[in-house]
Simulated scan of single mutants.
Amino acid sequence: MQVLYTASATATGDGRDGHVRTSDATVELDLAIPKEMGGAGGAANPEQLFAAGYAACFHSALRMVARRSKADVTGSVVEAEVGIGPNGSGGFGLAVTLVVDLPAVERSAAQQLVEAAHQVCPYSNATRGNIDVALTVREAAAA
């Protein structure tokens, strides 16, 4: 693979109760363990950062495949839900649900676009076979 861009971030402090900063300082955050995992909460956590990155990346992939098929993705939204829990082997694992709103696209066509985006999205390709990723097309609101 020819690398087109490389991002770099550094974690300091106590891992999940520490601090992260990208090399260009565009992202700089304190981290805290979520209350649900026994921490204090009140700051970002790695799962939120992963969810934000996956949602943005998947949305870009979705818009790319939509352009190719000339689909109208006006008003499209991608929400990534990232869960963490014990993996049964002494460690932890992640599970992802991608919830996609495509209000201007008929449901079966929307599902096809989402499936196609899942094949080209770098996050989807990186996680495939490693974590469960569920794809959900949200029902359009009744007019």
Rank of each mutant, 00 (worst) to 15 (best):
E47R: 00
P86S: 13
D24Y: 08
A71G: 11
G83A: 12
T26I: 11
D24A: 04
R16I: 02
G88K: 10
F58R: 06
V78E: 08
E106L: 12
A51I: 09
M37V: 04
F92V: 09
L102V: 09
D101V: 04
Y54Q: 01
S23E: 14
M37S: 09
L98T: 04
G18P: 08
V96K: 03
M64G: 12
G18T: 07
K35L: 13
D101A: 15
G88F: 00
V65S: 10
G13V: 08
R21A: 15
A71F: 10
E81S: 13
H19M: 12
G13A: 08
L49S: 00
L49Y: 04
G91L: 05
A66W: 07
R63F: 10
N87A: 06
R67F: 10
E36Q: 11
Q48P: 01
M37L: 15
A110D: 11
D24I: 04
V27S: 09
T26S: 14
G83V: 06
P34T: 00
G83C: 08
V105G: 08
L94D: 02
A95M: 11
R16P: 07
A51G: 00
V73R: 09
P103S: 09
F50H: 05
G39L: 06
G91D: 10
V105I: 13
P86N: 14
L31T: 13
T97K: 07
V82H: 06
V96C: 05
S108A: 14
T22R: 00
D24H: 02
L98P: 05
L62E: 07
V73K: 11
D24R: 07
I84E: 09
M64F: 13
F92G: 02
D30W: 01
V82I: 13
E36H: 07
N45L: 06
P46M: 00
Q48Y: 05
V65G: 05
R67L: 12
P34C: 05
A55Y: 04
V27I: 12
A51W: 07
D24M: 01
F58K: 03
D14P: 01
E28S: 14
R21P: 05
M37G: 05
M37P: 08
P86Y: 09
N87C: 03
V73C: 12
P103Q: 04
A56S: 13
C57F: 01
D24E: 04
A104S: 14
V105D: 11
E106F: 12
H59T: 11
M37H: 03
A95I: 10
E79F: 08
F50S: 00
A43V: 02
R67S: 14
T22I: 02
G75D: 11
F92I: 09
G41E: 02
K35F: 02
L62K: 07
R68M: 12
A61F: 09
S69I: 07
A32D: 07
F50M: 06
D14Q: 14
S89N: 15
G85T: 01
A55S: 08
A44C: 02
A61T: 04
S23G: 12
A52I: 05
T74A: 13
G38P: 00
S69E: 14
F58D: 01
R68P: 04
S76I: 06
